[in-house]
Structures are given as structure tokens and as C-alpha cells.
Computed example of a mutant assay.
Amino acid sequence: MKEALFYSKILLFGEYGIIQDSMGLSIPYKAFRGELKFSSENFEAKEKSQKALNEYATHLQNLVNEPDFHAKIDVEAFKKDIEKGMYFDSTIPQGFGVGSSGAIVAAIYDKYAIDKFGQSEEEIGKNEIVELKEIFGKMESFFHGKSSGIDPLICYLKLPILIKGKGDLGTVGIPASNDSSAEEGAIFLLNSGTPGETQPMVNIFMEKMKQEGFRNMIKSQFKKYNDECINAFLKGDTKPLFKNLKNLSGLILDNFKPMIPKAFHKIWKQGLESNAYYLKLCGSGGGGFVLGFTQDLEKAKSLLKNHELEVIYKF
């Protein structure tokens, strides 16, 4: 079997906003990865994975018979491979907002889809990307109740994706990370130490959307700051990026407290008051990772010395 690696993803911008048609920007993150593997040995991780894969095979069996599902998946071959000892070997932490289920879906589609879409920019156009997103949304719904399909799409294509609206998305180039030894600005991950669950957080958000004040905040302020951050980041223009990041971070602290791990409330505020860094949600929140942005990495490291900080991009 040809081994195919699928990386995790990070939604840099757009958490919750993409539900309401604001922009989103998601990138592959190669520090975590997963692949379908065969093993004749039995061990706990394999048995746990196989149990989940068997349950997922039942979901797929039902899905392929639905008239509005536009993909052919060889579910029988999938089931037979599980019986032969196949499992999903993954270093992607579950419930941390970095696409653990997205990687599984991408790997299964890659191996078992008949007449599958290509993975390179040359092989797949904008319309195909939108169609693939819809397919992946239905495939990933098993894990989250409802899925946009964005996470598996990133994991499958292994390219940054710019979401301009529900039906308007495509691959995009991002400024190269400055990997010189001089540490200046950076994007980093902070580990809350506990996983979060997507569906309860989305439920809280949808309840909040019933309030007129919250709805207006999302449609005006949140969308404005989020979209401006994306535009500035893609242009490599750090001044407007950090100006809008501060506004976005403050807005999230004021309006998304249930989604922010309690241990992070204080350091979130510290970043805003010191201007040393700004934090935002990484995915739906509730646990997992939190994203940080700084123009002075050494200062941010000093203030966050009690927290596990992982740099993912340098300005």
C-alpha cells in the first residue's frame, strides 16, 4: 500500500465568521500528520482506531446511498482493509482545533473514492473545489454533527485555502515565513492542555446569534476586523494586520468567553493591555489550542513563560 500522509490544518482567520459568510483563511500545518497503515500486531491505539473506522464505515455505507451525495466510495474495500489490520496512525491531537477528523476523511477519500478529484492546483479548479468541499462536509458530519467540509479540504489539497463566501473559495499563496535566525514577529500556538468539543461550542454560538446585539456585532465589527486581518496578512502588511488583530482579539474576549479556556482569560487580557501579543480562537475553542500573534516574539515568550508556545510562522 502506498502510504499517503495527511497533515493537520490551522484556521488562521474565520472561526465562527465563516458560518455567517465572512472570509476565512486556513493553512496546512505539517507538525501533525496522519496516515492509513496496516499492522498484523494488536495494540491499544490500533484497536481504538479500528473501532472508530468500523463505525465510520457504517456512516459511509448510508451516505453513499443518499441521492444528494455526489461521490462514489468503495465502502466494501474499506471494510475489508479494516479486517486486514488497517488503522489510522495519527499524531494529530483530537479536539484541539487542528483537523484530526479532517485528516481521516481526506485519507479515506484519497484511498477509496472512485474517480476522485486531483490534489494539485493544475488538476482541480474553483468549481471542483466547491464540489469537493460539499462532499467532505457530508463525510465529516459523522464526527461533528455538521461540517463545512473546509478541514478535510485543506488536509486533502495540502494548500492554503481562502474562503470568500460559502460558494466562493480557492487555493491561495501566502507570504513565505521568515525563517531567519533573528526572531521578530510570529504566529504561535498555545496549548490549553485539554481538548474541546466542536458541537457544544457551535450550539452556544447559534444561541447567541438569536440575540440582535450579538448578530449585529458579528455582521459589522467581527466581519470587518476578520476580513481586514486576512487582506493585510496576504499582502504581508503587518501594520494594519496588528491594528485589526487587536480589535478582533478584544471583540472575541468580550463576546466569546465560553469558547475561551478559563485559564486563558487573564493572559488574553494581558496581551491586549501590553500590546505584546494578541490571542484568538483556533477553531471552535472550548479547549485545544489558542492562536497568538506578536511583533516581538521574545517579549511574548517572556510574558507567556508559564505556557507551552509553539511557533508556526514568522514575520
Results as ranks from 00 to 15, higher is better:
174 I>C: 05
6 F>A: 03
271 G>C: 14
240 P>K: 05
273 E>D: 14
193 G>L: 05
95 G>D: 08
77 A>L: 09
140 E>T: 01
89 D>A: 12
128 E>C: 01
91 T>E: 04
253 L>D: 12
309 L>G: 12
168 D>Q: 15
40 S>T: 15
45 A>P: 06
80 K>I: 11
253 L>K: 14
306 N>S: 15
128 E>P: 03
261 P>D: 03
37 K>C: 07
116 K>T: 01
291 L>E: 08
143 F>D: 05
252 I>W: 09
145 G>Q: 04
162 L>W: 04
124 I>R: 03
131 E>C: 00
128 E>V: 02
132 L>Y: 07
203 N>E: 15
28 P>R: 08
271 G>S: 12
123 E>I: 02
279 L>I: 10
144 H>C: 05
25 L>R: 06
128 E>T: 02
91 T>P: 02
77 A>M: 07
11 L>V: 08
200 P>L: 07
47 E>P: 02
301 K>W: 09
143 F>N: 04
81 D>W: 05
35 E>H: 14
165 G>P: 00
37 K>N: 03
7 Y>G: 00
290 V>K: 03
49 S>G: 02
275 N>C: 09
81 D>A: 05
282 C>N: 13
149 G>Y: 00
299 K>H: 13
201 M>F: 04
3 E>L: 15
93 P>D: 01
116 K>W: 01
258 P>I: 03
110 D>Y: 14
55 E>Q: 11
114 I>A: 09
230 I>K: 09
44 E>Y: 14
34 G>R: 05
220 S>Q: 13
151 D>I: 00
119 Q>V: 14
119 Q>E: 13
132 L>W: 08
58 T>Q: 15
112 Y>V: 04
103 A>T: 00
151 D>S: 00
19 I>A: 14
230 I>V: 14
63 L>T: 04
274 S>N: 13
46 K>R: 11
93 P>R: 03
202 V>T: 04
101 S>R: 00
296 D>C: 03
134 E>Y: 14
229 C>D: 11
67 P>Q: 08
110 D>C: 00
174 I>H: 04
119 Q>L: 09
196 G>T: 06
220 S>V: 13
258 P>W: 04
62 N>K: 15
248 L>N: 08
34 G>Q: 07
85 G>R: 02
242 F>Y: 14
50 Q>K: 12
152 P>D: 07
39 S>K: 07
105 V>W: 00
95 G>Q: 08
232 A>N: 08
155 C>E: 02
42 N>C: 09
201 M>T: 04
105 V>Y: 00
80 K>P: 05
221 Q>V: 11
68 D>K: 14
236 G>V: 09
141 S>M: 01
110 D>L: 08
79 K>F: 04
